[in-house]
Design a protein around this nucleic acid. Structure first.
Length: 423
RNA sequence: AGAGAGAUGGCAGAGUGGUCGAUUGCGUCGGUCUUGAAAACCGAAGACUGUAACAGGUCCGGGGGUUCGAAUCCCUCUCUCUCUGCCA
């Protein structure tokens, strides 16, 4: 959520940022926010003045009662009726204005960083770099959804019986390589200075709001209605919300957490082409890194995170590219996002395996995550990134490393798996 | 799940209708003293909103109510603790 004071004082910059995102009706909505805010402040002032009078009267009555002057006290009581009615009315108005303002405010996305490229769609994303060589496959190479059947390591039909489409069962070496990747990713993060956490995978409404999934994306999350809990779409939500309503002492910054969780996404409406096999699932595993940084350090931290994710891809010997997302393709809450995509050789396309973002103060403002600098409160910056999401990594390894004799496991994973080939 | 007890400032813990935004202790920060530290003593310190700055307003788990006036009374929700039950 953007800060009201920022919008008020930087209307032009706000509008320019929203335009870069191709956010519809930006002028109208910003004007509405400013108008509502003005009304809110006027009403607040009226209410405050009324309450001040009312408080003064109550104090007088208290003194009169103490002095035993009942008659005067009763007389003073009569004078408060008006104030009471008026303050109730103003309080109602204020509450309504605040709700209206909030409802508009949450529809406004974060403002893009100055380095975010212009553009509307994924085609407009800027390529930052490409690394590794695209493998040449043998004549009878298969896409991963054939390979998993051939070697019987992931079973979609079985998952469909148990749960439904998009809930695969990993079997044998398929399950073991999943566990290997999780351990590998966590160990690497520990070496890079991250602290491992294991958060809940069901979250309440406040947490969903804190990181921006609510009210925007409720349709994308599974919801346990009896208990009003959402299944997490990413560990970003519970890990970042550990810092909701927190004033971090300076000595605790930066915080660097890593967590492994399953992730659940309804993916309502997104089924169709390009979602075969492991490309898009309702349940998948992911290791996530989350950092809280001082504002002046957050972009350095973002670069570090990007380098870190790349180091994982290099250790897995996967060809990848890094994209800087354009204004139109960025997530709602992000100020700058890098996507890492690996080459999926048999599909002949890039697969997004990580998204690393700086949210600046957008989440922190909702979370009320702050530090105190020279006696003043200041919002902190939040960042997160996948490190990494498992299914597409598995898909790329299967496809890129296939030979007529089987699938070669990247050497970094062999000690974790306990085997070097799937055959 | 049942019964009971609770929820107050970083922590502990007073406060049961009227200068209570809140006693006190610990912790924290500053000062005096000291070569330095400890101890002792003195002092400071919450958040939100609002203002050019003051002022003002709000916040004692959340929400609602009673009252001229609520941390304090009532309703409700959530959570915690103890006991019992059940169960990885």
């Amino acid at each position: 959520m953007l800060q009201l004071s920022f919008i008020r004082e930087n209307k032009d910059a706000t509008l320019a940022g929203l335009r870069k995102r191709h956010f519809a009706n930006a002028d109208q909505i910003v004007d509405q926010v400013i108008a509502l805010d003005q009304q809110r402040r006027d009403t607040q002032r009226d209410l405050d003045d009324t309450l001040a009078l009312s408080n003064a009267k109550a104090g007088q009555i208290g003194l009169l009662m103490k002095a035993g002057d009942k008659a005067a006290a009763e007389a003073a009581k009569l004078e408060t009726a008006d104030l009471k009615a008026r303050s109730k009315e103003l309080a109602d108005t204020l509450r309504q204005l605040e709700a209206d303002l909030q409802n508009v405010l949450v529809t406004i996305p974060n403002l893009p960083h100055s380095s975010v490229p212009e553009g509307r769609t994924a085609d407009d994303n800027a390529a930052v770099l490409e690394h590794g060589t695209i493998p040449t496959l043998h004549a009878n190479a298969l896409p991963h959804w054939e390979l998993i059947k051939k070697y019987d390591i992931v079973d979609f039909e079985l998952g469909t019986k148990i749960s439904g489409a998009g809930f695969p069962v990993y079997k044998g070496k398929g399950a073991r390589i999943q566990r290997a990747m999780i351990n590998f990713f966590l160990d690497e993060a520990l070496k890079a200075g991250y602290t491992e956490v294991q958060p809940p995978i069901l979250i309440n409404e406040d947490s969903g709001f804190g990181t921006g999934q609510l009210p925007d994306k409720e349709g994308q999350m599974y919801f346990a209605t009896d208990d009003k809990l959402y299944l997490i779409p990413t560990a970003e939500v519970p890990i970042t919300n550990m810092y909701r309503d927190v004033i971090l002492p300076e000595g605790q910054l930066p915080t660097k957490n890593v967590g492994y969780t399953p992730c659940f996404r309804r993916e309502a409406g997104s089924w169709g082409a390009h979602v075969r096999g492991l490309n898009r699932l309702h349940q998948f595993d992911k290791v996530e890194i989350v950092r809280i940084e001082k504002p002046e350090n957050s972009y350095t931290a973002l670069e570090e995170m990007s380098q870190y994710v790349q180091s994982l891809l290099q250790k897995l010997e996967l060809p990848y590219r890094v994209l800087r997302l354009c204004g139109g393709d960025m997530g709602f809450t992000s100020a700058l996002t890098y996507d890492m995509e690996v080459w999926s050789a048999a599909q002949g396309r890039w697969l997004e395996v990580s998204s690393v973002s700086n949210f600046e103060t957008y989440q922190a403002n909702r979370l009320k995550l702050r530090q105190k600098v020279a006696g003043k409160m200041q919002l902190l910056h939040t960042l997160n990134g996948s490190a990494l999401a498992l299914p597409r990594i598995l898909a790329a390894i299967l496809e890129n490393n296939q030979t007529p004799d089987g699938i070669r496991i990247p050497s970094a994973l062999v000690s974790y798996c306990g085997f070097d080939t799937i055959s």
